[in-house]
Design a protein around this nucleic acid. Structure first.
Ligand SMILES: NC(=O)c1ccc[n+]([C@@H]2O[C@H](COP(=O)([O-])OP(=O)(O)OC[C@H]3O[C@@H](n4cnc5c(N)ncnc54)[C@H](O)[C@@H]3O)[C@@H](O)[C@H]2O)c1
Ligand SMILES: NC(=O)c1ccc[n+]([C@@H]2O[C@H](COP(=O)([O-])OP(=O)(O)OC[C@H]3O[C@@H](n4cnc5c(N)ncnc54)[C@H](O)[C@@H]3O)[C@@H](O)[C@H]2O)c1
Lengths: 220, 220
DNA sequence: ACGAGTTTGTGAAATCCTTCACAATCTAGG
DNA sequence: CCTAGATTGTGAAGGATTTCACAAACTCGT
């Protein structure tokens, strides 16, 4: 399900579809660039980036060139510059407000993970159904009753929701979130969700990945 | 990085590369089929399967046809039959022995998740570095010291390892596991791993998925 | 200021994956 | 047994993504 988009921030030229794999790689490149920048490197070539990311120099250059021309021929890319550009392309030059729905094992692990805040993803709300969980605090956020979900996510101005729910509950919660104006969902449950147009869903399906590994092992 | 394989279990015909997306969809189809089977349906058409999985009838048929001819024209696929076939294709007609390395928030959540055992993935070992964790028990398995990792995974006959480690530790543990004969890794850390040929790695990169969502939100 | 050496940016080619379209084959009903 | 209706299996077409290959543009040392 590819999606159209218009270029970020008044750049007139490249109104163009960006492939999903490109966006994922951009996210990867960003990490390496930050490492390189931290290590004091001021420039980096497509070849070096490619090596870090298990891809090819041509791929790196194609990926970047869909957004503009950030490198210097003969030299490579300025690490600091490129970090700034990719952050802007990915929309990481701001913070995003996250809610976690389902405070079980997985939901708790995610809500307590400090790495997200460091990258601009702030957990501003946690919801559950279970009276024993409601009222407890995780990483400074008090678990709220899911029955006021719509009002709460609007009050909290949530941008993104992480669903760590039993599969049976996921669809109904997804619909309620979409209704309440949350346009991005990260779903850990096993059933694919149906959502209104304009809402993006990403799935994290552990069981599927294990089955892919099983297939790989089975076929030598 | 596509990989070659030879057809599962002495079928002479289709020595052919199977696309990764095909394998993932097979895993999806299997879930729906199990639901349909549980609901008493004896046959199902490619159209119905497609609808459940957000894909097209042609895609479903192509996917299945890379492995053989399982349907009946005019009727569809026998649910029970197809479940059995897909299980066999994916290598799910046996149990797989899992170890979890890193018993922090994420590792604990995974080790304690009952859903895996139900699908044939048995957690047989958990490892950590932290003396406070070593000796504790999760879901009936005692956390062992990672220093005997190689000997332990061989003794436990582990097939698959889940890495829930700090990124800095992941590469070294992956290398040790590969050395010890574990040919399939599921990695939760953020750095892509380099492994010897013959070892399959799947990544679960939460941060990357959030950044893809950030991109989607940013570009309307 | 110049030439040797690098590295980018990008059309074109190649590869990979999905969709189309239809003959082949089945069921069901009379 | 025959016909109407349904659905599979699959080559071929189409679309998407990756790789190739090379001119353009830069740096650096002299
Ligand atoms: N834990 C894992 O390692 C793991 C692995 C693979 C998949 N998953 C999937 O992730 C999801 C969560 O897994 P988990 O292990 O955290 O489960 P869990 O049972 O520990 O937690 C689920 C939580 O959701 C809450 N909940 C249930 N219905 C709700 C509703 N309608 N609204 C709000 N909260 C509700 C429950 O009270 C519970 O706290 C499941 O879909 C599971 O299949 C988890
Ligand atoms: N928790 C999350 O929601 C989350 C989200 C995104 C990514 N991740 C990633 O998953 C990984 C694990 O995250 P976490 O939250 O569970 O971290 P954590 O700190 O809770 O757990 C890490 C565990 O690994 C152990 N460990 C460290 N070095 C080790 C070694 N060499 N051998 C064995 N054990 C070792 C530590 O003792 C600790 O128990 C990290 O790479 C993290 O970036 C986690």
């Amino acid at each position: 399900m590819p999606h159209l988009f218009t270029a970020a921030r008044a750049r007139p030229d490249p109104v163009k579809r960006i492939a999903d794999p490109t966006v994922r790689r951009l996210s990867l490149y960003l990490r390496f660039l930050e490492e390189f920048e931290g290590a004091g490197r001021t420039t980096i070539s497509s070849g070096e980036l490619a090596q870090s990311g298990h891809t090819t120099p041509a791929q790196v250059r194609k990926d970047l060139s869909s957004f503009g021309s950030f490198g210097k021929r003969g030299l490579g890319y300025g690490t600091h510059d490129l970090v700034a550009h990719i952050r802007q392309i990915l929309g990481l030059d701001r913070t995003w407000r996250l809610v976690v729905v389902g405070a079980g094992r997985m939901g708790s692990a995610i809500a307590q993970f400090p790495g997200f805040r460091d990258r601009g993803f702030h957990v501003v709300g946690i919801f559950d159904l279970d009276p024993r969980r409601i009222g407890q605090t995780l990483a400074g956020v008090t678990i709220a009753d899911v029955c006021h979900l719509e009002a709460d996510v609007q009050r909290l101005r949530a941008d993104i929701a992480v669903l760590a729910l039993p599969p049976a509950a996921a669809q109904s919660i997804a619909t309620r979130l979409a209704q309440a104006g949350v346009h991005a969902l990260l779903d850990f449950s096993t059933a694919p969700l149906t959502v209104p147009a304009g809402v993006t869903v990403r799935r994290m399906d552990l069981a599927m990945e294990l089955e892919v590994l099983s297939f790989a092992l089975t076929n030598r």
